[in-house]
């Protein structure tokens, strides 16, 4: 309940901030009666009303049977996983696809309960295979990064 209220209020604050941001949106000269400001403001307004209602009367959360209660351990795991994804995004171009995906793939596999060796083998092979599949076979360009040297 408290989480839901908190979420609703945070989103409400975001709505307000976005509305302030949208306020000066005016077309320099315009041929139409409705400018670029009206639609976003309308949506934000409706959202604000709904969120306010949710903050006052939160609805109970139905949890599925196979979904355990969030504890500290899973929260830490989720944080780690998010961190890994961010590292992935940050190193995607500089290290290149193969290296960065191996770099984050192995700890990620560990996070989901894999053992070191099988994780390393599978992730390593998969990143090379996916590179070849997408970059070479399907013409989806992927960065080579550091491995550029091998190319020449």
């Amino acid at each position: 309940m408290i989480l839901q209220r908190l979420f609703a209020l945070t989103l409400l604050a975001a709505c307000a901030a976005l509305a302030v941001m949208a306020w000066p949106y005016q077309a320099a000269f315009s041929y139409e009666p409705v400018g670029p400001r009206a639609y976003p403001l309308l949506m934000l307004g409706l959202m604000a009303i709904a969120l306010l209602y949710l903050a006052i009367r939160p609805t109970p959360i139905v949890r599925k049977d196979d979904e355990p209660e969030l504890d500290r351990a899973s929260l830490i795991k989720i944080g780690l996983c998010t961190g890994l994804l961010l590292v992935f995004a940050a190193t995607f171009e500089s290290l290149g696809f193969i290296l960065s995906s191996t770099l984050i793939g192995i700890p990620m596999a560990r996070l989901y309960g894999g053992r070191w060796l099988p994780s390393a083998v599978i992730v390593g092979l998969m990143s090379i295979a996916l590179y070849l599949l997408f970059d070479r076979a399907m013409d989806v360009p992927l960065p080579l990064g550091l491995l550029d040297v091998l190319e020449n």
Binding site: T82, L85, L86, F88, A89, A90, F92, E93, F97, S101, I104, G105, I106, M108, A109, R110, L111, Y112, G113, G114, P118, S119, I122, V123, M126, S127, L130, F134, V140, P141, L142
Partner: peptide, 30 residues
Amino acid sequence: NWALVPVIAIITAIGVYAVHATTFDLFLMI
């Protein structure tokens, strides 16, 4: 899952990168 999830993550990143080839999109996706 341990073999599957990293592969899903990697393929997802490829899908996003293929659109505009910018890492900004990757961060936005996360």
